[in-house]
Simulated scan of single mutants.
Amino acid sequence: MTRRVAILISGSGSNMAALIDSMTGDHPARPVLVLSSDPAAKGLQRAVGRGVPAEAVDRRAYRDRASFEVAVDAALRREGAEIICLAGFMRILSADFVSRWTGRILNIHPSLLPLYRGLDTHARALAGGDAEAGCTVHEVTAALDDGPILGQARVPVLPGDTANALAARVLEAEHRLYPAVLRRFAAGDRTPVRLP
């Protein structure tokens, strides 16, 4: 049975593109919707260019988070989404929304969780003198950047690294990790993926 995947974005959608490009052949899932919280997100055009329906639910058009999430939820259900992949979706989802989709929302985060929840992860890794950084795909829970870890990829911190240089290498790892985790997750296997 093929699982129906919705991908939520807010920006350029590079992880979204990697996910869509991976869902071919014998993959156990197919993309049914790309949804952005920003109508100007470049990722919407990238999705359409890949043949995936795309739409925006503009967060600024709603009086509060609850009404915004009602609109997002309605779009997801209209398309029959079974799995939600957050891919640079820059909105924190409420506990109420997460509870309606428990066990079906994945997120990618640019650190080796539980290290560096939140923002500025690369600068924080450099400031901490870490020998390696990386990324994590996890199941979304009501707590920020928490939930069961479904995969991690490690990236060495190089001498003279800047936050931007490290971020670029971590992003390459994200593009490998997220598709690998989604393939396994959509097949019903939650065993964590570990990439070097």
Rank of each mutant, 00 (worst) to 15 (best):
A143E: 15
G25C: 02
G128R: 02
V170P: 02
L119C: 02
V72Q: 08
R100Y: 03
A163H: 08
V34S: 13
R169I: 01
V140E: 10
G88C: 05
T24W: 07
L8W: 03
I108M: 05
L106S: 15
R124A: 13
N107A: 04
R154H: 13
W101K: 06
F89D: 02
Q45T: 04
Q152Y: 07
V155N: 04
V72Y: 07
D161L: 03
N15G: 02
P39G: 06
V157P: 02
E82W: 05
P39N: 13
R50S: 07
T2N: 11
R183M: 07
N164W: 10
G129V: 07
H27L: 06
R154L: 12
G129Y: 05
G103K: 05
F68W: 15
E172C: 00
G147Y: 04
P148F: 07
R176D: 15
L33R: 12
H122L: 01
L144S: 07
V157D: 15
A40W: 03
P31N: 10
D161S: 08
R184K: 13
G128P: 01
S36Q: 03
F97M: 00
P28F: 08
I9H: 03
L182Y: 12
F68T: 09
R100G: 14
T141Y: 04
G43F: 04
R3A: 11
A127L: 01
T2E: 13
P196Y: 06
V57C: 06
P196L: 07
R194T: 14
T102C: 00
D96V: 09
M23S: 03
E82A: 08
L112A: 11
G128C: 04
S22G: 06
F89K: 00
D189E: 13
C85N: 11
M23F: 08
L93Q: 00
A47I: 04
S22M: 08
P148T: 10
P114W: 09
P114S: 05
V57H: 06
M23Y: 09
A125T: 01
D26F: 02
D189F: 10
I92P: 12
A133R: 01
V48L: 13
P156C: 15
V155M: 07
L171Q: 14
M1E: 15
E132C: 10
V193H: 10
G80F: 12
A71Q: 14
A187E: 15
R184P: 07
S111G: 08
G188Y: 14
G13Y: 06
L158P: 11
P39R: 03
V52D: 14
S37E: 06
R91W: 08
C135M: 04
V98Y: 01
A18N: 02
L33M: 15
S14P: 00
V98T: 01
G51W: 09
R4K: 12
A123V: 05
G25M: 04
A187C: 08
G43H: 04
C135T: 12
L8N: 03
S14V: 00
A167M: 02
S94R: 02
P196G: 13
I108H: 06
T24Y: 09
R3Q: 14
R65N: 10
R59C: 06
T24S: 14
A167R: 03
L195R: 00
I108N: 05
G88V: 00
V193K: 06
F97W: 00
P156M: 13
D146I: 01
